[in-house]
Structures are given as C-alpha cells and as structure tokens.
Amino acid sequence: MYDPTVARLTYRGLLGRRRALILGALPVLLIVISVAVRAFTGTDDQVAADVLGGFALATMVPIIGVIAGTGAIGPEIDDGSVVYLLAKPIKRPTIIFTKLIVAIAVTMAFSAIPTFLAGMILNGNGQQIAVAYTVAALVASIAYAALFLLLGTITRHAVVFGLVYALVWEALFGSLVAGARTLSVQQWSLAVAHEVTGGDLVTSDVGLATGTVLLIAVTVVATWFAGQKLRTLTLAGEE
C-alpha cells in the first residue's frame, strides 16, 4: 500500500521548492504572534485559546493542508510528470495512499508542532490548551490532507478551491451560518480537542461521536475517490 519511492519523490517535490518557504511562513508568523501576545498580555488562558483557535486551527492548519494536500499531486498532474508514476506496474490506490501519508506528515509537521510551541509560549499548556489544540491540529491534518489531495487529483484549480473552502466556508460562513459549522473539519477536530481539555475554553458545535465519524468518513471517502480518479486520469497532452 505504501511505496517508498513515490513517497521520496513526493517529499522532495513538496519540500524542495518555493512551497517549503510558504509552508514555513505561517508557523513562523504564529510563533511571532504568540511571543508578542505573551509579552504584552502575559499568561491568559482565554487569549491563548483565542490565538490557537482563531489563527492556528482556523487559518494556519487548513492553509498548510491546502498547500501540502494539493501540492502532493497537483503539480505533477499539471505538468504531466505524473506519467512517470502512472507508467509503472503500481496500483493507483498505492500511489494515492502514499501521497496521502506524505501530505499528512507534512501538514502535521508544519501545523501541529508550531501549534504546540505557540501554546507553550502563550500559557505553558495551562488547562491543557496547548495539547488540546495540538491534537485538534493533528486530526484536522489527516482530514485536510485527504480532502485537498482529492482536490489536487480532480481539478487544476485545486489551490483556489482549497483556499475557498478553508477561508470562505470554514472561516466566513462558519462564523455566520450555524449549519456550515457542522460541516467543517475545523469543528470536528475541535470536538476532539474539547474532549482533551474537558473545560469550556475549547468548544465545538458538534459532538465527539459525530466529529470523529465525519473525520474518518471524509478521510476514507476522499482517499478512495482520489484512487479511482487516478485510475482513469486522462493525460490530455498538448492536443
């Protein structure tokens, strides 16, 4: 199911180019914000939860998910180099699964680790806030990576669609329309985070069971569908 060569090519494609700079920019920004907030307001659990919930989980994690998820396959399909993977006796779902693992690992590394560091800087993991948001970032990384990998497989405009989902749907509609919040990776991962803290600092619009089921369902269905799409991927060529 996992092909180390596909993984190596994907890692190098993801981390070798300008994409690595973009991937690194948001975590650096989060750390800078955290240091500044800590310096100006001192330790405050509510502020820590606001920064981690409002910036780290609501903005940084999905954007990194978009970059890593779509970047794990989109550019190869775009420029046609995916042909070197497809012209091999390797099962298409293996290619997708391997790329998913890489996308998850990269999203986790660039989102969960900085989230934890920021939480430690903000309030030293008081009330388990750092750990809770780190767990939320970890589980969200899985679902985002799967979702955006699928987007990268089915459309050339995956980054645009991904950002629209992450920023417009989750951030904007999520804050305006209650229903949109139920269908949001962010809320599902918050449900898991809520379980970690137990308190009211981290809350979600969905229950733990619903959140978990939806996270797993989205990941599995998106990955399966991406594998199917790759099986019948048409390389249009220049004509």
Binding site: G16, D79, S81, V83, Y84, A87, K88, L235, E238
Partner: peptide, 26 residues
C-alpha cells in the same frame, strides 16, 4: 516503456536519481 513528449520530469532530481526512481518503481 514510454517516452512522453512533455518536458516535465521531476526537474529537482539529478538524472541518476530520476532513472533510479524509475527503476525502483519497476
């Protein structure tokens, strides 16, 4: 064996790395 017309081919690899990767995939 396929030699596509399009140029793109994992430009960030060396020629050897690229051919080795192709061999491994087989």
């Amino acid at each position: 064996g396929i030699v596509p017309e399009r140029e793109a081919m994992y430009d960030f690899l060396t020629g050897r790395e690229f051919v080795v990767a192709n061999a491994e995939l087989h």
